Amino acid sequence: MAEHNDKGREAEQLAKCWLEGKGYVFVEENFRYKHAEIDLIMTFQGLLVFVEVKFRGGTGYGYAEEFVDYRKRQLIIRAADYFIHKIDWHQDIRFDIVGVYRDRHGNIAFKHFEDAFY
């Protein structure tokens, strides 16, 4: 597997643990539907939350949230719609982005954008 894929998977696991520490409950990871993938699906206070995780080794090329473009959002929404129907969910949903940042010293920081799009 390519190094960027390994870093992405590591970032997803870090984000999952961080969100669980904030009271989120894990439902599923790497849910695929056609050409789309949802990194994390969690529940939080009665909401079903679809989370896109982005890793950055710095901000020189931009912030994590800037890399979830219109096309990516549309794919995530389609996959979420399929998942909602699959599990017969009838409560509210939300789409979040979690940026995972590692500085040059290896320190990890998170930036959470709740209700980032839809």
Rank of each mutant, 00 (worst) to 15 (best):
R102F: 00
E12P: 02
G8E: 02
F113D: 05
D115S: 13
E20K: 13
R32G: 02
L48G: 06
K72H: 15
K22R: 14
Y82R: 15
L75I: 08
F67G: 11
V51P: 02
D39C: 03
Y24Q: 10
L40M: 09
I41M: 05
Q74N: 11
A116C: 07
D103P: 04
W89L: 09
E3M: 09
I108G: 00
G57S: 13
E52L: 04
Y63K: 12
A109G: 05
E12D: 07
A15L: 05
Y61R: 08
I77Y: 11
V98Q: 06
W89H: 14
F117T: 09
G21V: 03
Q91N: 15
G99V: 00
A80T: 09
T43Y: 03
K7M: 01
Y63E: 11
D6Y: 06
Y33S: 05
F50C: 08
F110N: 05
V49N: 04
R73K: 15
A15T: 01
A79S: 13
A11D: 00
L19N: 06
G23W: 04
G106C: 03
N5D: 08
R94P: 01
A79W: 09
Y70Q: 14
G23H: 06
V100H: 03
Y33H: 14
G8D: 04
E3C: 01
F50R: 08
G58Y: 00
M42E: 06
M1F: 14
M1C: 07
L47C: 02
K54E: 06
A64K: 01
G57V: 00
Q91G: 07
R71K: 15
V25T: 14
D103M: 01
M1G: 15
R94S: 15
F110E: 03
F44C: 11
Y70D: 15
E3F: 02
K7H: 05
E20W: 03
H112M: 03
D92I: 02
L47H: 13
Y63V: 09
E12N: 03
H90W: 07
E3A: 06
F117V: 10
H85C: 12
I97W: 09
G46K: 09
H112Y: 12
E66A: 14
D92K: 15
I41V: 13
I84P: 04
Y61L: 03
F55L: 03
V53Q: 10
Q45I: 12
A80N: 09
Q13A: 10
F95Y: 15
R94H: 07
I108H: 00
A2S: 13
T59P: 00
H85R: 15
E37Q: 15
G58D: 07
V98D: 04
A36E: 03
N5C: 01
F50K: 10
G21A: 10
T43G: 08
D103S: 03
G58L: 00
F110C: 06
G57H: 02
K54S: 05
I38D: 01
Y118H: 14
T59K: 09
E12Q: 11
F44G: 02
R9A: 05
E12S: 05
R104M: 04
A64Q: 00
A11L: 00
V68E: 08
T43E: 13
I38T: 09
E37S: 08
H105V: 02
H85Y: 12
D88N: 15
F44N: 13
K111S: 10
Y61N: 10
E29T: 05
Y61C: 02
Y70V: 14
W89D: 04
R78T: 05
I108N: 01
G106N: 04
F113G: 01
Y33T: 05
